[in-house]
Design a protein around this nucleic acid. Structure first.
Lengths: 202, 202
DNA sequence: TCCTAACCGGAACGAGCGCCCCGATTATAT
DNA sequence: ATATAATCGGGGCGCTCGTTCCGGTTAGGA
């Protein structure tokens, strides 16, 4: 897909990178609804230049979301290897915090004016794959109740991002996160401190 | 507030009622972003007629939200008297379900392009009051952990509505609701888990 | 029935925004 | 340095939407 059939002129390459960088920040701050002119202005170029590199506003937004998703997936992988039992929680709450600063990603995720699975099927599939892994991992470690699937986790992410955006103060979320955490923990087990030595075979 | 300083002409009164009714349904279906022309068309009147009764689109939306809030408050009161311990849960999940069919209320609640406290201070205050009551009642009954306040509950409502809207199938929420419920009930677990927990952000 | 003030509808205005066009500019090979 | 083709920028087109305006219509009292 991203093939360089012909080298880009130096100034063109510079402008393209600049537009991407600025769009990155602007979509995060303002959401997908921000005018292209605003992005062009911030990047110090004309609107025409933006449209030369990205045929539509939608395609620019997609490029940004795809990149963000790649970062998110990578982070999820790291989180999973660090601590299998905690990986899901760490990732979940980090996604929520990211929702506070990245409106574009939040919208893409919640499906507000953007169909993630339709627009970026590969990225979406990869994301789902990683989520499946770290969820299964946590369930194997016994830190998450077994009757939940990936769709439930995605739903929770959407909810958490909405909450985080609603409540500007990160400090206050410290009371909400434990609630979610407690709810996700195994229902019957009084749990407390999981020794993680109980390796159940599925 | 709703004073009749002068009797409205019969056709005018009929049109006003019709516009309100249609706006009610349309805002619920399409959200606050729906064009006034669409509401006028559905009501079978001209756009001018809508503007004669409501000076701005915003004022029409406010009128609708105020009415919905009144219903919500009333329902909360009923729920509280039926079963003190269950009242909060019943109300919470009912609000979530309502979010599936009433986009306008969801947006107003989440503060998307609408400042509830600023636009309808009285209604907002009354809502907060009721929420405070049924939360305290549930906490007294021992069904909800005591370290939560109204702001936390409001945050959860916003999150639940976002989740419910994300997940079109009501059936599937049957797995998410118990998670929230379990989290709210858990005595407490602000523990210091083995590792990580919540990552720090700026 | 007739008169008049209230009311109606939809054309029209202005602002915002996605996207395109084209004369001016500039990178780069020769 | 010069030619040439790629690139630039911003004005403009077309559309949507909130709001206003006004000539035609109608309710309802005399």
């Amino acid at each position: 897909m991203t093939e360089k059939s012909r080298p880009l002129r130096a100034d063109a390459a510079r402008n393209r990178a600049r537009v991407l960088q600025v769009a990155y920040e602007t979509f995060a701050e303002e959401g997908a609804g921000v005018p292209i002119d605003e992005i062009a202005r911030r990047a110090g170029v004309g609107a025409g230049t933006v449209y030369r590199h990205f045929p539509t506003k939608e395609s620019l937004f997609q490029a940004i979301v795809a990149d963000r998703l790649r970062q998110v997936v990578e982070r999820a992988r790291e989180q999973a290897t660090t601590d299998p039992g905690e990986g899901l929680y760490a990732f979940l709450f980090q996604m929520a915090e990211q929702g506070a600063t990245d409106l574009g990603l939040t919208e893409a995720f919640a499906g507000i004016g953007f169909d993630l699975a339709a627009a970026l099927p590969d990225a979406e599939k990869e994301f789902t794959g990683v989520m499946t892994e770290i969820l299964a991992q946590a369930q194997r470690a016994g830190t998450v109740r077994p009757d939940l699937d990936v769709a439930d986790i995605k739903t929770l992410i959407v909810g958490l991002q909405a909450m985080r955006r609603f409540r500007g103060d990160s400090e206050l979320m410290r009371r909400v996160y434990p609630v979610i955490r407690a709810g996700l923990a195994a229902p019957d087990s009084a749990d407390a401190s999981p020794a993680s030595g109980t390796a159940q075979t599925s």
